[in-house]
Design a protein around this nucleic acid. Structure first.
Lengths: 337, 337
DNA sequence: AGGGGCTGTCGAAGCGCTTCGACAGTCAAC
DNA sequence: GTTGACTGTCGAAGCGCTTCGACAGCCCCT
């Protein structure tokens, strides 16, 4: 293992000079810099991470806490995680992967040990048990998701309320009067995940404004659960012509069932999905959808964190504006029969 | 921030004693141990990770390199990643998330800087450009996936060849003579990902043994791509009655298309999928499938690594035996018309 | 010519921990 | 009662880096 001291000796300078070349915190003459850089390359030097963390009081690591549960749509989480990792690297940070398993203890461990300089938390619940700890610690921290009380916290999230409203508005403009919402699995609501409840709020207030009738049904993913849910919906509201789907793993089953029942999309029934674009274009019908900007969320979270670590940036709630893309799964409501 | 020295002072012992209490590397009297542990709790002490890494020459971090690409089935990768993270924690390790973006440089950086004690590589290609580096370094390392040459490497993977053979065997036993394989996206084959090619080998040699006719078609995910592929298959081999699907995102489209064409599953056509169990049971037909044991792979990889780090364990290739679960998507071949 | 301000480099201290060797004290064996 | 092995604790060195203050040399201004 090559050390700073060896590089210094090789270049004929002192260790501190090499350090300053590396950090750029003091001016170094061009000739010295070149000599040092040359030595670094020749010796294949990599600064020791532990020593750096110890002396510099920063590890250049960002901790990312992802949920263990798999009742949320996994590809979205993965996309966020990958966006976090790649964005972090462009700022010189590495990413430590924590699962929800340890819960609040993980927060304590990481902040206490100086393992990470900052944290990103995913899958935040409205009353998340980790929040008190985060408020106490002075470690920079960004939530992906929006808890009930955001005082003293920085959050990045899609504006789910607006998303809900947007879906309803689109259907209302097309003349639909009876709209059903295929929601996330019941467990998601039970643990008060912000995004699900907020979407529902947006849907409801949008429906109220527009005078729509809204029926909300949580739904596990999969074909069987969807079949049951759909039967109940048409049973209760036979005139339903619009669907908003928030559970990605219910999308394809819904389309299949509608087809099977002889209900044409979009002629008889319109479907608006809340899902990543990839899902929307790969479905059996190209779906009108509000995109979940997973990458953007990951990227923004890291950039906020880096700003905070650099002394810039403050507590702030960033809500990304939703965008609805019209594809071929939505159209004018059929004339009332 | 609480330091070892503070704990020592609080407990009325020397720093080294506290260290030995923590590591258990020397015997400590019960009374002293209790006093120290008490102080640790009272002060809320967490050992500093950087100092530990520097002095102890090990960071207690395992690096996990996941691919950037999303042309593989993402949930499987996620499941592996989560299994790695949770298993690592039970052995006292944290997990550093590296994306494929940096490529071989990431290997150099991590081994050079002592950031991680060991590595796990996912998405290994047959002739992976990272392998030479891994063979050089003395850092323990486990691949999830199987390169062409495994000398000096430890690998964990599903036995894909056996998986392919198992699928064919099942269909052969049911009397199918013409079998089509819906493979991964062409890009997966082009970059010579081991699992795709090995599965194909298994399918082919199985078919040869059993006297089946096999038609292999790579296929992008999604409905449109599947529609095209399916049309070509029936065009070329109208008598096809068996399908093996390796691309998870083609499963549901395939089922929908078959239904649409009036081909009943399993009466007219049998489908065997290679996918996680969750996908198999959530599909619109409960799929006969060979499971991808993502969790097991992640767990085994970490356990091997931990064994290596502990001086036990050697280079070894672990191939997990595939298991086929018969559900309702496969049945006897229809009598020849 | 002399002082003042820069610029570029160095030496040394110290970050918090592990670990080695030293050394009291205890106990069993002779 | 001495020896020797063993147990439990301590002090000090050192891991590889960052950073602070010091300072030599230089140029420019008066």
């Amino acid at each position: 293992m090559v050390t700073l001291a060896e590089v210094a000796q090789h270049a004929g300078v002192s260790a501190s000079t090499v350090s300053y070349v590396l950090s750029g915190k003091r001016s170094i003459s061009a000739s010295t810099r070149q000599r040092v850089e040359q030595s670094i390359r020749e010796l294949g030097y990599h600064p020791n991470a532990g020593a750096r963390a110890l002396a510099g009081k920063r590890s250049n690591i960002i901790a990312l806490m992802i949920p263990l549960r798999t009742d949320m749509y996994v590809p979205v989480m993965m996309e966020i995680a990958i966006a976090v990792a790649t964005t972090a690297r462009t700022h010189g940070y590495d990413v430590l992967l924590l699962t929800g398993e340890e819960g609040p203890d993980a927060v304590r461990r990481v902040t206490g040990s100086g393992l990470a300089d900052a944290m990103i938390l995913m899958d935040v619940e409205l009353e998340d048990e980790r929040l008190p700890l985060l408020r106490e610690t002075d470690q920079p921290c960004v939530l992906i998701g929006l808890p009930a009380d955001t005082t003293g916290l920085t959050c990045v999230d899609l504006d789910w309320t607006a998303t809900g409203a947007l879906c309803v508005e689109h259907l209302a403009q097309l003349g639909h009067r009876d709209v059903a919402v295929i929601g996330e699995a019941p467990a998601v609501y039970e643990r008060h995940t912000g995004f699900a409840e907020r979407t529902l709020d947006g849907l409801r207030s949008g429906a109220r404004e527009r005078g729509l009738r809204l029926l909300h049904r949580p739904c596990e993913g999969g074909y069987d659960a969807m079949a049951l849910t759909l039967a109940r919906i048409f049973d209760e509201r036979p005139g339903t012509t619009g669907f908003v789907v928030q559970n990605e793993s219910a999308v394809e089953p819904l389309l299949a069932l509608l087809r099977q029942q002889g209900r044409a999309v979009p002629e008889d029934v319109s479907v608006v999905a809340i899902c990543p674009d990839q899902v929307a274009v790969q479905a059996s019908v190209r779906l009108t959808s509000v995109a979940i900007p997973a990458q953007e969320m990951g990227r923004r979270a890291v950039e906020h964190l880096v700003a905070k670590l650099g002394g810039r940036g403050s507590d702030e709630v960033v809500l990304l504006a939703p965008g609805l893309t019209v594809r071929t799964s939505s159209g004018p409501a059929p004339a009332a029969s």
